[in-house]
Design a binder for these strands. Sequence first.
DNA 1: AATATAAATTTCAAGCTTGAAATTGTTTTG
DNA 2: CAAAACAATTTCAAGCTTGAAATTTATATT
Lengths: 160, 160
Amino acid sequence: MSQAKLDHSPEAAPSKARLRLWLKLLKTSAGIETELRRRLRDQHATTLPRFDVMSALSRNPGGLKMSQLSQFLRVSNGNVTGIVDRLTEDGLALRVAVPGDRRAQVARLTPAGVAEFARLAAEHEAWIDELLAGLALEDINEMTALLEQIQPAAPAGDAT
Amino acid sequence: MSQAKLDHSPEAAPSKARLRLWLKLLKTSAGIETELRRRLRDQHATTLPRFDVMSALSRNPGGLKMSQLSQFLRVSNGNVTGIVDRLTEDGLALRVAVPGDRRAQVARLTPAGVAEFARLAAEHEAWIDELLAGLALEDINEMTALLEQIQPAAPAGDAT
DNA sequence: AATATAAATTTCAAGCTTGAAATTGTTTTG
DNA sequence: CAAAACAATTTCAAGCTTGAAATTTATATT
């Protein structure tokens, strides 16, 4: 019979390889995210959550209900409440009553918000270009395809 | 001469492909991270930051200075202060004075912390196995290799 | 219509995170 | 050795994040 296997056996190795991949994946995305946060803060006095909300509102000029916004961004309702509050204080967003339903409100960018986001988005794209410069175009598409195969429990409102 | 290029031209496409990769990368790691946080909370009444600190201390039975801990985890000093405070309140970690230097302290796991982390780590590895089940072993190694090529500004204390 | 159920949002407490300021202790240097 | 420079840590305010509870409004059921 086959002996009990050690860590280097074919049975144990895949688990370690997956763990290694996860740590690398996490480290890479956390590293990029940290750099984006730093640049948003230092160069534009804003934050990633604010950028994300503005980005979602930018794609929906008609506005998004608070609940749609939180589903789209996959964060809690209470979370977007606070972020939209602060964007509103800064004149970048506003809340509009929904005609048929007095419970609901739609968040929209103000003209100032639209202009500000245009600036941020251009910078953001350039930053990503720079931060992913290490990968050949071929590798870019290769990795994107591989990532498609990982499907962590990600139900509803999937806007890839 | 060549005309001005549109978005689908060879010059514009790579930038969009990189942006797409970044969004996918972020979404994938955020999805896995959210699931890990949920399981740590629901099944073990703990958090990812606590797990990370315990993991670092577990690899260093002799303890780590607060500053070493924050460098290793790439978070601020003030951050680890709070997490170690809470682990200490729960009897999972403790601070030990450093002989030569009265400013410094070393954080260590208590025996209860060691035991608790053993449980958590086993679960964690199984979860990663499950969450990355969509990828063949071949793809695992392929993606790990590709991730190596992305190097976001990541100086000092690099413990991959 | 009165009641119950459901839905949209906000409020809240607790923890995480950061960068800057404050503390305390060490080392260097004039 | 006193002063200045440096180092390790904690404290702090502000923002992010969550899940649960509370509000307010809408819809469905008796």
